[in-house]
Design a protein around this nucleic acid. Structure first.
Length: 324
DNA sequence: CGCATTTGACCCGCGC
DNA sequence: GCGCGGGTCAAATGCG
C-alpha cells in the first residue's frame, strides 16, 4: 500500500511550532532582549540592567517552556476526551450505516438502540473507540457470552477520501494491513474489505473498511481487537516519516464541510521530536497552515477546561512573577 | 520469484 | 432444518 503518498502526514499540525520558537529560537530571544534593553536601559546602569534582564529572560523562557509543555499535555487530554466523545456519538450514526440490524445483531444492534438523527455527516475523521469489553453493558455480553474473542475492542473511524477516489478502500492509519477478503453486503452496494494487521504476525487486530451509503467519499473503518505491538509510525517517526491517520484527531464538522481532501491533525505526535522535522511538508501551504492553526485554536479555545487551565496557568505565573 | 491482492467457495450463526 | 448473509479461507492472479 502506498503509505508514502498519504496526505495525512502532510497535514499534521505542528502545535508546538510557535510556542517552541518563543524560547528555542535564539534570534527571537535576542530580539526580545534588545527590546527590553531599549525600553529600560535608560533607567538603570548597564551592568545591573543586563544581569537582571538576563535573569528575567531566563525566567520568561522557562515559563514559556512550561506553558508549552502544558499546552501539549492539554492538547493530548483534549484529544483523548474528544475521542471518547466521538466514540459515544458514533453509536448514533451507526444504525444508518447498517440499517438492517435484526439479522446481524452482534455489532450494530446494541449500538443503535439510542439512535437519534443519524447524521453521519457530522462525524468524519473522527474516530471512535468503542470499548465493548469493559464499557458495553448493553446486551452484547448477554447475547454472546461464550465468544470471548468478540469482546475485543471494537472501534470505528470515519475517513473522508478524495471525491474522485471511489474505488480504493485503503484507510491509512499507520498500521500495515493485509487484505484477506472482500464482500458486497446487502445494506451497502459498496464492497466491504477485510484486513488483518500484518505488522506483527501474532497481532489479532482486524479491520473492515466500507464506504458509507450516504456519502461514498467517506470510508467507515471498523477495527476489532487491540494491537499487541507498538504503532509502526512511532517507530518510523524517529526517521522523520510520520505517516498515517491517527484516530480521533480531527474536528469532525469542519472537515466534512469542506469538499477537499481529508485533513488530519495528529495532535498525539506534536510532542515528539519529529514535530520540527517532519511537519515541513509539501502540502503545507500558508492557507492550509493558517486554516489548521485556526481550526486547532478554535477547537482548543472552545474547550472550557482548556481555557480554564490556560488562564489559571497564566495568571498563576503572572502572580508568581509579580511577587519577585 | 516472492509477496500482496483478488475472488469464488466454503463456513457458521441467525432467523424463520 | 433450511435459507440467507456476513466472515474467512485459499487458490489464482498480478505486480515489482
Amino acid at each position: 500500500m502506498d503509505y508514502s503518498s498519504a496526505a495525512y502526514d502532510d497535514t499534521s499540525l505542528d502545535l508546538n511550532t510557535k510556542p517552541l520558537r518563543l524560547f528555542d529560537d535564539t534570534p527571537i530571544k535576542k530580539e526580545v532582549h534588545s527590546k527590553i534593553l531599549i525600553d529600560f536601559g535608560r533607567q538603570l546602569s548597564a551592568n545591573e540592567e543586563s544581569g537582571a534582564l538576563l535573569e528575567e529572560l531566563q525566567r520568561v523562557s522557562a515559563e514559556n517552556k512550561k506553558l508549552t509543555e502544558m499546552l501539549t499535555v492539554m492538547g493530548e487530554s483534549y484529544n483523548a476526551l474528544r475521542s471518547q466523545l466521538l466514540d459515544y456519538m458514533s453509536k448514533n450514526p451507526e444504525k444508518e450505516l447498517s440499517p438492517i440490524s435484526k439479522k446481524r445483531k452482534s455489532e450494530s444492534s446494541n449500538n443503535t438502540n439510542t439512535n437519534t438523527n443519524t447524521n453521519s455527516n457530522n462525524i468524519i475523521n473522527g474516530a471512535v473507540n468503542g470499548n465493548s469489553e469493559s464499557s458495553s453493558s448493553d446486551g452484547e455480553s448477554c447475547k454472546k457470552p461464550r465468544e470471548e474473542t468478540i469482546k475485543a475492542k471494537i472501534s470505528r473511524a470515519y475517513v473522508r477520501t478524495e471525491a474522485s477516489d471511489t474505488t480504493s478502500l485503503v484507510v491509512k492509519d499507520g498500521y500495515q494491513w493485509r487484505k484477506y477478503g472482500q464482500k458486497v453486503t446487502r445494506d451497502n452496494p459498496c464492497p466491504r474489505a477485510y484486513f488483518k494487521c500484518s505488522f506483527a504476525p501474532s497481532c489479532p487486530v482486524k479491520k473492515k473498511v466500507q464506504r458509507s451509503v450516504e456519502d461514498q467519499s467517506i470510508l467507515v473503518a471498523t477495527y476489532e481487537g487491540e494491537h499487541n505491538h507498538s504503532h509502526p509510525s512511532q517507530i518510523e517517526a524517529t526517521s522523520g516519516s510520520n505517516r498515517g491517520m491517527t484516530l480521533g484527531s480531527v474536528p469532525s464538522s469542519s472537515s466534512l464541510a469542506s469538499s477537499g481532501p481529508t485533513i488530519t491533525l495528529d495532535l498525539t505526535k506534536s510532542k515528539s521530536s519529529a514535530d520540527t522535522k517532519s511537519t515541513k511538508t509539501r502540502t503545507e501551504t500558508p492557507e492550509v497552515r493558517k486554516f489548521l492553526v485556526e481550526q486547532m485554536a478554535s477547537s482548543l479555545t472552545k474547550d472550557p477546561d482548556f481555557t480554564k487551565a490556560l488562564a489559571a496557568a497564566i495568571s498563576g505565573r503572572i502572580l508568581q512573577h509579580n511577587s519577585y
